[in-house]
Amino acid sequence: MGGDGGTRGGLIVFSYFLRKILYAIPVLLGVNILTFSLFFVLNSPDDMARAQLGNKYVTPTMISQWKVSHQYDLPLYYNETQTGLAKWTDTLLFKKSLAQFTFQFGNSDQGRNINADISQRMWPSLAIAVPTLILEIIVNIGFALMLIFFRYTSFELTAVLICVALMSISGLFYIIGGQYLFAKVLKLVPISGYETGLDAWHFLILPIMIGVISGIGSGTRWYRSIFMEEISKDYVRTARAKGLSEVAVLFRHVLKNGMLPILTSVVVIIPTLFMGSLLLESFFGIPGLGSYMIDAIRAQDFAIVRTMVFLGTVFYVLGLILTDLTYLWVDPRVRLE
């Protein structure tokens, strides 16, 4: 591997990802326009105003006043009263939907600054989501390797049955059961709420724990099947013929190969961690982006919902691009030609 090949390889990687990012633009544009038609055509600004003002005693004047004050009084996608480019730009499509590409989301229908809300609320979301993800991966891989070590025994069979049982229980049960046991009966942590700064851990530890436990069943079973496929491959037999012990075979050979599909599936969701968890946050009263979304839906504040849908798409596309990059990084067989 000379330096020459390195630079050329770097160029190939760069142009590959540049192309991927260019591909992402039409995807985002499509999602943007679809969301726009859902939120503005099916649910017209008049309906929005009525919902915001309360359904009783709403006069047409009140509706138009509300529309003017929230800048919903523009035509949908073509403004005949304007001249030149403004015919297109001075419209709802441009001002409310396409403007999201600048990541300036403006005010919510209730008058709050969405950008400020997001930058404040993403931290509690991350404080739950990141530790949950990391612990989940470690715990599930650990359990999966243990099942592989004891494969074809009654221990494994029992464990798989328990996994299926754990999978079959609703997430709500884990949340409510956990709150009851650890907060109400044992009184180890508060039931719900949040505090800024380092003291937040009182409030975070239970949701994180429940997030991890509720994922053990499906995660362990999935990782087990990945490792199980690896362990029947020829290179594992070669490793055993070298004299390696079963544990060494698992950790040096099986784990490393099995990590490829696991890593890439995890990388996809890393950017979306910003969005927080809808269920956990609303049940534990965590002021993150998940509960922000729930509150917005409840209050029919569609400016926030549109923003979150757009952000979700951006993060997911970003996740897919990161996945490609990870593959390139961890799997020596993947090369860009």
């Binding site: 491959k233 020829d234 290179y235 037999r237 070669t238 490793a239 013929a241 050979h253 490393k256 190969n257 490829l260 961890v330 799997d331 020596p332 067989r333």
Partner: peptide, 12 residues
């Protein structure tokens, strides 16, 4: 082993 393609670990 017979099949060197699969008998070697692909990621090492």
């Amino acid at each position: 082993f017979q099949e060197p393609m699969t008998a070697l670990n692909p990621v090492l």
